Amino acid sequence: MWFNNIHLFRLHDAVEISVDELAYAMGSHAAVPLGNADARRIGWTPPAGRLNNWLVREVQGQRLISALRQERLLPASVVKEFVDDEVAEIEANEGRKVTRKEKTALKEQFTEELLPRAFVRSHKIDLWWDTKRNLIGVNASSRTRAEDVLDLLRETLGSLKVTPLSSQTLPIRAMTTWLGDTASRPADMQLGDSFELKAKGDDGVVRARQVDLDSDEMQQLLESGRQASKMAISLEGQLSFVMHDDLALKSLRFGDALIEEADHADDGDDALARMDTDFVIMAGALGQAVDRILEWLGGEAKTGGENEHAQ
């Protein structure tokens, strides 16, 4: 139970809801198999999988819930091939050109016919809910996938006032400063050896790994106006990640000390207890890391909580 990526969100005016109440509400939106006519669907699934059917795990105020996203894989090229064959047959038999409207109707027809035979891809997305910090983190590779889970949670609860976590200093500005000025780097932060620089114009993106971030070449790139949009960072040996300009933390790697702490926990052979231990240790490390990152970035930006994503 260790996240790979995390998109962070702030809960505003969070309503108190017990684990039992939350689990009951989630039950009405639990994942079910896709119907033949369904292209995609998302619903709640037990975080522990076959180990336990509880929809919510809570340890020390840290909640873990999971969504199952299912979608049928029907490549557009497959549908196009059926449409092209049908169009060719109609034109040959009837001696006329098939109209664009007819092609659109054929596309819809073949999509409907082929969908039930398409493979189903399932993807589990975990959500960490820190009830003490009113913070939510979604383990998803993209913000779009994270938003899908938040939409499901909003539908489940009836209302959810949440905004992407934001800082007083923009991450792209802070990362650029850290690259260009070694004295500006926080004492407990260590820069990694990979980065991405964006140009303000149309000069593209520079990506590099295993480079000297303090080299003359790097300084020349910064002096040309490029800004750091991604950067590998380590925090006190506890956690390493790639920070993105939207404050997403990707490629999470937890320190050896944390892994050893989890390994040495007295869980016996209880796989469920081990999952809970891993989760609470991970959640503790992530919470502390978020607190520290916000300090690096001048604190959290003030929002009204009634704007984006609030319903």
Rank of each mutant, 00 (worst) to 15 (best):
I136P: 00
N307W: 06
E295W: 06
G255S: 08
L294H: 07
Q70L: 12
L34N: 10
L115T: 13
R173N: 14
K302H: 11
T303W: 01
L157W: 02
R50E: 15
M275A: 12
Q70K: 09
E91A: 07
D203S: 14
S234I: 06
K107F: 00
E112V: 10
A232P: 02
S251H: 14
L8C: 10
K107I: 03
Q227N: 03
S251E: 14
F110Y: 14
D84M: 10
K124V: 12
K97D: 04
Q168L: 12
A118F: 05
N134C: 12
K124L: 07
S18K: 04
V98A: 03
G49R: 02
A39Y: 11
E58A: 11
D203M: 13
M231R: 11
H12F: 15
R207W: 04
E108F: 00
G180Q: 08
A76D: 14
T303N: 12
K250G: 01
E71P: 01
R154C: 11
T177Y: 00
T163F: 00
A31D: 10
S251T: 13
G201E: 08
L258C: 05
V83T: 07
W54P: 00
T111K: 10
A67M: 05
L249R: 03
I125S: 04
I42F: 06
L152S: 06
R173E: 14
V242N: 10
R185K: 08
T163A: 15
A285P: 02
D38M: 12
R133T: 08
Q311T: 11
W44R: 02
L160V: 04
N93T: 13
I90R: 10
Q210R: 15
E91N: 08
G298C: 10
A174Q: 15
S141C: 01
V205D: 08
P75I: 06
K80Q: 15
A39P: 11
K97Q: 11
L249V: 10
L252C: 07
E89Y: 03
K200R: 14
P116H: 08
Q227V: 14
H7A: 07
K101I: 07
W44Y: 08
L64C: 12
R40V: 07
V87C: 05
V280R: 02
R173K: 13
R226Y: 12
T45G: 01
W128N: 03
E16F: 06
T111F: 00
R10C: 05
G204H: 11
D13L: 07
K200P: 09
D246A: 13
S194G: 10
L165K: 05
K124Y: 00
D267E: 08
D256P: 04
L258H: 03
V280F: 01
D38K: 06
L258T: 06
I65F: 05
T131H: 06
M218L: 09
E295D: 15
F110P: 01
E102P: 02
S77C: 04
E16V: 11
L247N: 11
A271T: 01
F119N: 09
F254P: 05
I136F: 01
R154F: 09
L249I: 09
L64M: 12
D291V: 13
M26H: 02
G35A: 14
L22H: 02
L170N: 08
N4S: 14
L22P: 02
W54M: 11
D269F: 09
D188R: 02
L191N: 03
L247I: 12
L74T: 13
